[in-house]
Amino acid sequence: MKKLLVLMALTWVAGGASAADVVKGDLLIRTLQVGETSMVLLKQPAGVSGRSTVSCLPDPESAQQMLSQERTGGLLLMPGSKVTVKNDTSRSFNDGSQVKSAFIRFECKAAPKVTPKAPVKTPPKPPVKKKAA
């Protein structure tokens, strides 16, 4: 249940631009962390305009749990996955933003393993000397 709650709170990455974007020639590489979702305007076969979302999920079980909920869908990527689309430059998002590159590659990055930090040792406080009355 706790896992599900985490999934329900997916973070939206801006459709037009993101801090995690890297441009290489005519390819924009957008790295999504686990729990992040991005909108995409793409070209489907036969030049048809498409619109969807791309999300990065931690594992297939979580993806299945998420898809069992209402108002979920789009493309769910597992960590290590790379998906490339042809950008639909003829359209822009609702906020007027647009991705300029010809192609967009979404990469789903696994969450870094959290290693428990060693407890910080604080030196013992020196005993407070009582002032003589």
Binding site: D26, L27, L42, K43, Q44, P45, A46, G47, V48, G50, L57, P60, A63, Q64, L67, T72, G73, G74, L75, L76, L77, M78, G80, S81, K82, V83, T84, V85, K86, F103, R105
Partner: peptide, 25 residues
């Protein structure tokens, strides 16, 4: 080789790199 595959104007959709796993409803 996404550039070669997508250079065809009739081509589109989602191109998966080897090792990719996706789920859809």
């Amino acid at each position: 080789n996404h550039e070669r595959v997508l250079s065809d104007p009739q081509m589109g959709g989602f191109l998966l790199a080897p090792g990719t796993r996706i789920l859809v409803k």
